[in-house]
């Protein structure tokens, strides 16, 4: 049985590795809008759920995935909000401001999930 810190490191390495894999795929794709599909690929989720499945079992992974539905809804709002923001501010600022959209929508969708 691995300790929690070790599991976190494994999740980090797996998540980072999968993100790079999808990023490499996205780099080779065009047009940019098609490549953008893969900017929202489930890389972190696949890594996290796989490690959770192996470490804690299916019930824990199921609970993680249930919570993720709220985050996924937030992701749609984030991407939609960031496009007009990118016309007005630099990408770093737009990315930060759009987090308000992610947080608001994820919180609203999370309420029935968490209660």
């Amino acid at each position: 049985m691995l300790s929690d810190p070790v599991i976190l490191v494994i999740k980090g390495l797996a998540g980072g590795g999968l993100v790079v894999t999808f990023a490499l795929l996205s780099e080779g794709l065009s047009p940019k809008r098609f490549a953008g599909l893969f900017s929202a690929a489930p890389a972190v989720a696949l890594a996290g759920l796989t490690v959770t499945l192996l470490d804690k079992g299916a019930h824990s992974a199921h609970e993680n995935a249930t919570g993720m539905v709220a985050g996924g809804a937030g992701m749609v709002a984030y991407a939609a909000a960031v496009v007009p923001l990118l016309r007005r501010v630099r990408a770093g600022g737009a990315a930060a401001i759009a987090l308000v959209a992610w947080t608001a929508v994820a919180a609203i969708v999370a309420l029935p999930i968490l209660l």
């Binding site: 929202a40 989720a45 996924g72 984030y78 016309r87």
Partner: peptide
Amino acid sequence: DAREDARGATVGGAALALFAGVAA
């Protein structure tokens, strides 16, 4: 290009929510 990537990510994000639903 950044804006086009984000436009694509709106559909990718909706699909991500579906991923979560199917996984759950």
